[in-house]
């Protein structure tokens, strides 16, 4: 899931000031689960904004242009009447909504990470979309998102009793977790293997199959 958190209402309220009418787009997938952009949150924001609000729609997955088209169709008039959209979804959803509507997008959420949800309020970052998944070699532990330094060859000198120096020794050191997992799987040879520098060039990616 894409984990998001709400921007404070005051921030959103300040952002909408220059606009006459705004429409709210929520997300029926990740942001609904995070309780940041579901039906309840979209409705609540619409009420707080009051008269300026042209309406709201919770799009099943606003990051998908086809679904945007389908789910915004019934609200065509309200969307058209607004000069800006408040997006209660992740950055990808917000930009897709901008592309689809051609209107100014006011992000209502902050996108945090790709993560695991244990329960509402417990979210754990699990992937940085590195483009070359190596968790088979790391006991199923992602070093890019779970090691504060994204190291590829074992823990740094900052781990103490399996805890990470970053954040005051609260979080588990990813590489001690990886070591223990591989040890349990009797695959320590994989830990000891040298992993050469990765391609970290991170060019903007667009996949277009013609």
């Amino acid at each position: 899931m894409i984990i998001t958190k709400k921007k404070p209402f005051e921030t959103i309220n300040e952002s909408i000031k220059p606009f006459k009418r705004v429409f709210i787009v929520g997300c029926g997938t990740c942001s609904t689960v995070c309780q940041t952009g579901g039906e309840a949150q979209a409705k609540e924001l619409a009420e707080r904004i009051g008269g300026k609000c042209a309406g709201y729609a919770v799009v099943e997955s606003p990051c998908d242009m086809r679904v945007l088209r389908r789910d915004l169709a019934p609200k065509r008039a309200e969307v058209d009447s607004a000069d800006a959209i408040v997006a209660l979804c992740c950055g990808a959803g917000a930009q897709s909504t901008a592309d689809f509507t051609g209107k100014t997008i006011i992000p209502g959420l902050d996108t945090l990470f790709i993560g695991k949800i244990e329960r509402i309020g417990s979210f754990y970052e699990r992937c940085r979309a590195c483009t070359d998944c190596i968790i088979l070699e790391t006991g199923g532990i992602c070093p890019y998102s779970r090691c504060a330094k994204g190291l590829l060859n074992g823990p740094c000198g900052g781990q103490v009793q399996g805890k990470c120096e970053v954040g005051g020794y609260q979080r588990d050191c990813a590489w001690v977790l990886a070591y223990n997992a591989l040890k349990k799987q009797e695959r320590l040879d994989v830990f000891k293997k040298y992993r050469p520098p990765a391609d970290r060039s991170r060019k903007p990616q667009e996949i277009v199959t013609r």
């Binding site: 504060a148 330094k149 994204g150 590829l152 060859n153 074992g154 740094c156 992993r195 050469p196 520098p197």
Partner: peptide, 9 residues
């Protein structure tokens, strides 16, 4: 935090 390489690399 850069850490493009780690100390082994």
């Amino acid at each position: 935090p850069v850490y493009d390489l780690d100390s082994a690399q």
